[in-house]
Computed example of a mutant assay.
Amino acid sequence: MKKAPIKRSEFLVQLSRDHHLTLLFCWKIKEGLKKDIPLILKDYVLFFWNEHMQKHFNQEEELLFARSSSSLCELVTQQHLQINGIISQIKDSDNPQKTIFQTLIDRVNQHIRLEEREVFPFLEKTLSKEELEKIGETLKNEKDDFADDYHVEFWKH
């Protein structure tokens, strides 16, 4: 039985769009793992982190998770730290191994699914309409026009 798509609050939809972009980032890394290109993958991970994902994490933490003391918000904040740690390991490695990239893919995919399926619905129910509107307005004003235009299209065959 096919699951119905998740209907996201209009105020959080930008964060869900970012998640889609990040799932595509994971897919690209997965495609890159089929080739022997660890330094290109490292460079791509750092490009995506510096240009997009780090800002996304900060927005979630400051705009959403800081408004709730729930264990779910604590968990996803911890996951942000773990993902940041994996990216630091990649950054610090002269020749990152495939396993670290696979770990990154796995953790990011699990993290996004948790946010989309549990955390966002929880916050949509527990935050007031006024809070959600304020978050949505801030996201709209802070919207970046990030394009995943990495200069090497390594994921293509």
Rank of each mutant, 00 (worst) to 15 (best):
L33Y: 05
D92L: 13
T138H: 06
V152S: 05
E62I: 15
F11C: 12
Q102R: 08
F65C: 03
H20I: 06
K98L: 09
T126F: 11
E131N: 14
I6V: 15
M1H: 08
Q97R: 12
H151Y: 15
F48A: 02
V13H: 12
F57H: 00
E133Y: 11
D18A: 05
P96E: 01
L23Q: 07
Q14G: 13
R8E: 11
V45W: 01
M53A: 07
A66L: 05
K7N: 15
P121Y: 04
K55R: 13
L15Y: 11
S88A: 14
T99H: 15
L81N: 14
F25R: 00
V13G: 05
F146H: 08
P38G: 01
E31H: 14
I37F: 03
K7V: 11
K134M: 08
Y44P: 01
F11E: 09
Q14A: 14
Q78M: 13
I86S: 07
Q102F: 12
L24S: 10
I135S: 02
C26R: 04
H20P: 04
L12N: 04
Q89H: 14
E133Q: 14
K30Q: 11
K35V: 03
F122M: 04
D92P: 09
K42F: 05
L63E: 00
D144C: 10
I86Q: 15
D94H: 08
L63Q: 03
N109Q: 14
I112T: 00
S71C: 08
D144S: 13
R113K: 13
E62F: 12
I112P: 00
L63D: 03
S128H: 07
K156C: 09
I90V: 08
F11H: 14
F65L: 01
R67G: 06
E51A: 13
L39V: 09
M1D: 11
V152I: 13
W27M: 07
P38D: 01
F65D: 02
V13C: 09
E10H: 09
K125C: 12
R8G: 07
E62A: 12
K129T: 11
P5S: 14
F25C: 00
K35A: 06
S16Y: 02
I105W: 04
N95R: 13
L41W: 00
F146S: 08
Q102G: 06
E130S: 15
P96V: 02
S69P: 10
D145G: 06
S68F: 03
F11N: 13
W155P: 07
V76R: 01
S69R: 12
V108H: 00
H151D: 10
F65P: 03
F25S: 03
N58K: 13
D144E: 07
T99K: 09
P96M: 03
D36F: 09
H19E: 07
T99V: 14
Q78P: 04
D148P: 02
K2C: 15
R17M: 14
I105T: 04
Q89W: 10
Q97Y: 10
G32E: 01
H111N: 06
T99D: 15
E124C: 04
Q59G: 02
F48L: 01
P5F: 07
H19N: 06
L15S: 07
L41G: 01
A147R: 10
E116I: 00
E74A: 14
D43G: 04
T22K: 07
S88Q: 14
W27G: 06
Q59M: 04
G32R: 02
L72P: 07
N50I: 04
